[in-house]
Design a protein around this nucleic acid. Structure first.
Lengths: 334, 334
DNA sequence: CTGTTAGCGCCTTCAG
DNA sequence: CTGAAGGCGCTAACAG
């Protein structure tokens, strides 16, 4: 390995001068700088980021923690964050909490021991005290996205869950439905319980009841959607419409309907939170609330970079807007 | 920040003893060790991985480079790798080359400057010389997956592209098709050109011609699939079946067919490489070659861990097996 | 403008 | 079994 000392010797200057030349810090004679750059080039010098970080106490690395990287939503958010971070000169260290608070805490500790400069976190439900003890104690800035620890961190970016669910419920009510059920996601995550709360609120606004038997699911998977729908169908055949808290849940619902020969939208209308690039090609095509998942990542990054660089004291909470895309599954005709 | 020195002082021992106790190295009086552990616990000591890495010259970090993290395939491969790496005690540093060789080289350099212990790389087509100059020169082990630099690195994991395409072509020929076109992916990537080569070979085996006009696409996107299909439809209406090199390309094809009122499978049969969890619910449901994308990541990780730990000299090349799932788009009936 | 000195936090000789 | 000393590669403070 070729070190800064080698470059300095080769250029006939001291290590500090070499360092200054390479980092463009301070004034110096152009020919001195040129000599150093040439030497670095000749020796193919690559600085050790490790050593630099140890000395400067900044790593230019940000930790990214999500429940499941392979989920399309998180993958897109990651992409958005990665792009924005790279632009700002940061690198990404990725960890997966596997939907487990213990795993999340372990991930945070590892990242913190790595001296990351900041954290982008979609929590699976650690509490404020745990958050305090692991991240706040170190003073590392943290921005939450999609799922937050209430009143913690330097900011958060959430989808406009309330508006999304409202669109869905209003639209189904507009089609004449009154017995509407909800497939919920994981209720320890912000998007899960916000969508549930919003569903209750939207139904109430139309003077409609929400029976506990009409709330099913509890996980984000397609399986949970299928099972929840089967339970729903068995428990109360009078339900005429379903709101799914995610595409996966909606797909599960579609599977269940095929098994039970329930026709969508004739026997049961369906509309989902989360659009997908294949929604148009499904049978029937899926009415859904759309948004840009990458924007969640990039917006969170913007907040984090701000916090890392200016140490802003005020917590900022952003909402990413959503819009309804009507297709066939709700009962609309193409 | 609490350092090893603080712990040592608190426990009334030297820093070296504290280090030994914490890392379980060497023999020592149980009470000494206990005192150190207690002190570390009391002070909530967390070792600086940076300093440790600088000293030990191993970071327990692996670099992961892909063309696009938000693609479902890479996201799943990442998940597989992440899980396997974490199990082996490694962390993941992620970079996105954005389908650009320049970006890929930059990513590799950054990772290498971070002293990663190993590399998991899906290349977008850098050449052997560039690979040599950046990674081989440092001696950092690298395992390729999905897309390789020929005869480079410590190993590779590829899908069985030849078998997959063969299944697809054989099946379509079995339905009586003879004029079959191919939507290709990016030909600078291994999966892209292997699938093309395999298509030619499979067609030849049936004594069928492959016209250049029947090869369209060139990128992995849905858009490329749509445009390629429109071109195909315009150039030669006698084509009766299409093999898509990926789901995205297949979806693009389905969009194009809707625009032109071409019915699948009656007017045009379709079958794709890559299965998807929603393939069953498409209209028509999509015949496809299936495999486990996470396995690509975990298998590559196994190879890499082996290389990092035992410095194996022999290059190993793995193939992940695939299988055909027949549905309606090829002309089969449910 | 440039060189010398010191130290980030840790681990690993080498003595005792 | 334990302590002292040195250094991984780099940069910041202080002289000159």
């Amino acid at each position: 390995m070729v070190t800064l000392a080698d470059v300095a010797k080769h250029a006939g200057v001291s290590a500090s001068t070499a360092s200054r030349a390479l980092n463009g810090r301070g004034e110096m004679f152009p020919e001195t700088r040129a000599a150093v750059l040439e030497a670095a080039d000749a020796l193919q010098f690559e600085p050790s980021l490790l050593a630099r970080s140890l000395r400067t106490r900044t790593t230019w690395t940000v930790g990214f923690v999500v429940p499941d990287v392979s989920s399309p939503f998180y993958a897109s958010a990651l992409k958005g964050a990665q792009t924005a971070l790279e632009e700002a000169g940061y690198r990404v260290m990725l960890m997966d909490s596997r939907q487990d608070p213990g795993g999340e805490l372990a991930a945070l500790r590892t990242l913190l021991n790595h001296q990351v400069d900041g954290l982008l976190l979609s929590t699976v439900g650690i509490n404020r005290k745990q958050f305090r003890a692991t991240v706040e104690r170190r003073g590392t800035p943290c921005v939450f996205f999609d799922s937050v620890v209430p009143r913690a961190g330097e900011g958060s970016v959430l989808l406009d869950n309330a508006a999304g669910i409202e669109h869905l419920v209003d639209h189904l009510v507009g089609h004449g439905h009154r017995r509407i059920a909800l497939l919920t996601g994981s209720l320890v995550e912000t998007s899960g319980h916000e969508r549930l709360d919003a569903f209750r609120a939207a139904m109430a606004r139309h003077g409609l009841d929400v029976l506990d038997a009409h709330l099913r699911g509890g996980r984000w998977s397609s399986d949970a959607g299928r099972e929840g729908t089967l339970e729903l169908l068995a428990a109360d055949p009078r339900v005429t419409a379903i709101v799914a808290s995610s595409v996966e849940l909606a797909l599960g619902c579609m599977f269940a309907c095929r098994e039970r020969s329930v026709r969508i939208p004739d026997d049961l209308a369906l509309a989902a939170f989360d659009d997908a690039y294949f929604a148009e090609l499904l049978d029937p095509s899926l009415t859904a609330v759309a948004y840009d998942p990458a924007e969640v990542g990039s917006a969170a990054t913007a907040l984090l970079v701000e916090a890392m660089q200016h140490g802003d004291a005020t917590r900022r909470e952003l909402k990413v807007s959503v819009n309804l895309v009507t297709r066939e599954s709700c009962g609309c005709t193409p």
